[in-house]
């Protein structure tokens, strides 16, 4: 057997555990008779145990922290997408509320005209609605985008949206609307913030839903 070529080739096959029993027998037989190859084989095995004994190199102590600190932050989009996938019912609810609030808000913004509930005996001057003295308004009074002066009596609830209650000629003593010259025989409600408007709309929605 050629030492340099064949025998060394077989040694490496042996080291890679990649040889047939036939080859193994060939190598064993050769090694018995060839001192040079014995030496070579011994050196190879020793080399491997040397490599394996090489010092272990450790990462710097703050390595993990540095890696974690430089990871890209998760894109918010993925976070939301994942959340939506996990909670389909809440997603549907969220979409419903977005559409509903959107509708209410745009109704609030678009509608700047003076709107007064249909009542007799009301006097309208510009954007001011007046309940004249000696007049009794039957039913609920709603004024939107306008001011209200009450001299007379309202037999029902008063709702004032996006407007002010003006004292008129008469004095209103303190906060008591009921005690002013005009009289409201029901609840008085004033809405002039968007959230109040939303609340008012929802109340209206629920009232109409549960009215049946």
């Amino acid at each position: 057997m050629n030492c340099d070529k064949e025998a060394v080739e077989l040694m490496h096959k042996y080291l890679d555990k990649d040889m047939t029993t036939e080859d193994q027998a060939k190598l064993a037989q050769h090694l018995e008779n060839c001192e040079d190859c014995q030496k070579h084989f011994h050196e190879l095995k020793r080399t491997i145990s040397f490599i394996k004994s090489a010092e272990q190199i450790e990462a710097p102590p703050d390595f993990t922290q540095k890696v974690m600190a430089s990871l890209p932050t998760e894109k918010k989009r993925f976070k939301y997408l994942r959340w939506f996938k996990v909670h389909p019912v809440l997603t549907a609810a969220a979409i419903f509320f977005i559409l509903m609030f959107g509708g209410i808000v745009s109704a609030w913004q678009q509608d700047n005209k003076l709107v007064v509930s249909k009542q007799d005996n009301l006097v309208i001057k510009g954007d001011t609605v007046i309940v004249p003295e000696g007049v009794t308004v039957d039913g609920d009074l709603v004024v939107k985008n306008g001011n209200l002066i009450i001299h007379g009596t309202v037999d029902g609830n008063v709702t004032l949206i996006n407007g002010k209650l003006l004292p008129g000629d008469s004095t209103i003593d303190g906060e008591g609307l009921m005690a002013s010259v005009g009289e409201v025989n029901g609840k008085f409600e004033k809405v002039d913030e968007i959230f109040e408007w939303i609340w008012y709309s929802i109340k209206g929605l629920f009232k109409s839903v549960f009215a049946y």
Partner: peptide
């Protein structure tokens, strides 16, 4: 990272 850091660094 903590588990593989030494191997990868080495």
């Amino acid at each position: 990272v903590a588990f593989f850091q030494n191997k990868i660094y080495q």
